[in-house]
Amino acid sequence: MLLFIAFPLVSVVLQSVHTPHEAVLVTVETCGPFGCSQETAIDQDATSALRTSEPLGRFVGFDIYLDRAHLAVGEVKEAWAVADNWDGFFDAIGNLPFYRAMAFTLTFTFTVTPILIIFGLMIALGVNALSEKIKGVVIFVSLLPMIVTPLIGSLILFWMIDSRGILGNAIQWLAADPDLSLKASTILTWVMLIVYGVWHSAPFAFVVFYAGLQTLPMDQIESARIDGASRWQQVRYVIVPHLMPLITFVALIQLMDNFRVFEPIVGFNAEAHATSLSWIIFNDLGGETRQLSAAATSSMLTIFGVAILLSPVLWRTWQDFKGKS
């Protein structure tokens, strides 16, 4: 594990501070019948020799981190200086790829996670009240959206939501607008991706909460009822506190998973309206020009983001550990 994960990490860090060599230029003087002229040409041999001898490229330090495709410090400063109000500032920043991706990733993470927790809890409470016979079937069906490959799941929904698909048709009919297309508008694309995210992850929350409901302290519920608690109050004051550790667990796992949202963007073909950090990395790596160092830098920034997201948890675990020993 250490070899295969720690080593690539080192490789990522190294790559993120290097950039491909520039071509070696030579100036050649060509003399013709009408006098001599100087030409600058690329010395192919020398360039390829240099590139094979040092495949990492030349060392540039943190330059890539600061360039336009990543943190874009220069552009942000300029936008800050030019913009006279917050709207203008955010408009300017929204055009920078890194911040655009960041905006979507964060929005996605922090809308999907709470919605899916509430949704999962509702399903779990509902299923728990069903009769034994149909429980099994309902659980089987509920697992499907989670088990299915994310790319495949998003493709299936994408085809249905297409303006010629059944859901797309239904939405057009509901909105009474025959030209409505979910793919054309940024807001609707985001909503679509968020709905997909909830659809995909709610089963996970459901299964965990459902298992938690099996260990519900019946005597506490009974005493709450004797004290005159309504059904809603029982849920609010007995069941939810009982499930609290599980809610934290689900929230943690889902924060991590939603932060790396990637497949739905490919599946929904939504690159034009929504990009995520993982998608930027994928895009840099793919295509004809494999921009390894740009991708490595994005990777480092993503890992940094994950670290920030995880830091409260790590801090608490560390406190627990210190308390134990």
Binding site: I5, F7, P8, L9, V10, S11, V12, Q15, P55, L56, F259, R260, F262, L277, S278, I281, F282, D284, L285, R290, L292, A295, A296, S299, M300, T302, I303, V306
Partner: peptide, 11 residues
């Protein structure tokens, strides 16, 4: 995210 490691493997 797994993809962050991929660029480390590629080179």
């Amino acid at each position: 995210p797994p993809i962050t490691l991929v660029s480390g493997y590629l080179l």
